[in-house]
Amino acid sequence: MTAVDAEERPAATAPRRGRIPTAWLRLLPTPTSTPFTFSYGLVLLATALYADLGDQATVTQLLKESSTDAAHLADRPVLVLLASALWVAGGLYSAYGPAFLLVLTALERRVGGARTAGVFLAGHVLATLATELPVAGAVAAGRLPEASLHRLDYGISFGLMACVGALSGLLPRVGQWVLLGIAGAMCAQDLIELIDPMSSWGHPIALLIGLFCRPLLREGPAGG
């Protein structure tokens, strides 16, 4: 062994301490590689902080105005569909926040920001309409009380669940079934407990919407 080799060997074999592996960093969004998820994540972080730390009377009023209940959808559909997706149900302590970052980062890295946003929006809008329009019809037919038109319904869970369904088609077979198994178990638990019927039915509907999007995401290169 030469003197040069002896000097270089420790540096080459020394363990890297205090450094996060690149593979782990790829699980999180960045402004350059996943701009949609990164930007949207910052918005959700800001609203979650305000929901937990802001004036609760104001927060409650904002959530009511952002609700995608049947009455608001009939009055100002575009506004409430957009506004309701700016909040995370449960605030900073909700599991939806970390799940959003992991799932949408993985999806955006594979298909780009535009198609990721499209899947999220499709799940959020279509699952909301699929659960709220029947309520409006039932109220009009006299099968539900008028109070059913006014309920608190907001959050990112429908869009997130659609992205889960879409992402499953881009993973290896084992990862696909693991992801769908977890999502399916959550949907089944929702339907069994039926704490909030609209959300309980909306989650499996959103998952199916994401599954229907899978063939579209396999075609063509990823775009931003």
Results as ranks from 00 to 15, higher is better:
L149R: 05
G165Q: 04
A188V: 15
S168V: 09
L211C: 06
Y50A: 05
W177Q: 07
T131G: 03
L171K: 04
C213T: 07
F120K: 08
G41R: 08
L144N: 01
R143W: 15
L28W: 07
F120T: 00
G184R: 02
L121H: 04
L81K: 03
L170K: 07
A23W: 14
R109D: 05
P134W: 11
A138P: 01
T22S: 14
A95D: 07
L129K: 07
R16Y: 04
G113S: 14
H203E: 06
S148V: 07
T105P: 00
A71G: 10
R218F: 09
L79H: 14
E146N: 09
F120P: 00
L170E: 06
T13N: 12
L79S: 13
L121S: 09
W24Y: 13
V78S: 07
H203W: 04
A6L: 12
T34K: 04
S148F: 03
H150C: 08
I192P: 06
S67Q: 11
A130N: 00
T37H: 02
E193I: 15
L180S: 04
L42A: 14
Y93H: 14
T22N: 12
G41Q: 10
T37N: 01
F36D: 01
L92V: 10
T37Q: 01
P10D: 04
D69L: 03
L160T: 01
S94W: 01
M198K: 11
L133E: 10
G91D: 03
L126K: 06
T2V: 10
A185G: 12
R16W: 06
D153F: 06
Y154K: 08
V4C: 03
M1V: 12
D52L: 10
I209V: 10
G54C: 07
P215A: 01
S33H: 13
G202M: 10
L25T: 11
A206G: 07
A222V: 01
P221F: 00
T32Y: 09
R16S: 14
S199M: 14
V125N: 00
L79M: 08
Y40P: 06
T60E: 15
V4D: 11
P77D: 13
R218Y: 10
A183H: 01
A83Y: 03
Y40E: 02
G91F: 04
A83V: 05
P221W: 01
R110Q: 13
G181F: 05
I156N: 02
A14V: 08
A11T: 12
L207I: 13
L129Q: 09
A85H: 00
G90T: 08
A89C: 11
F38P: 08
E146I: 12
C163D: 07
C213M: 14
R16N: 04
P215T: 05
T2W: 05
T13H: 09
D190W: 04
P21T: 00
S168K: 03
A95C: 12
W87E: 05
D55G: 09
G97Y: 15
L63Q: 09
L144M: 13
A122T: 03
G224C: 12
P197Y: 09
V78W: 06
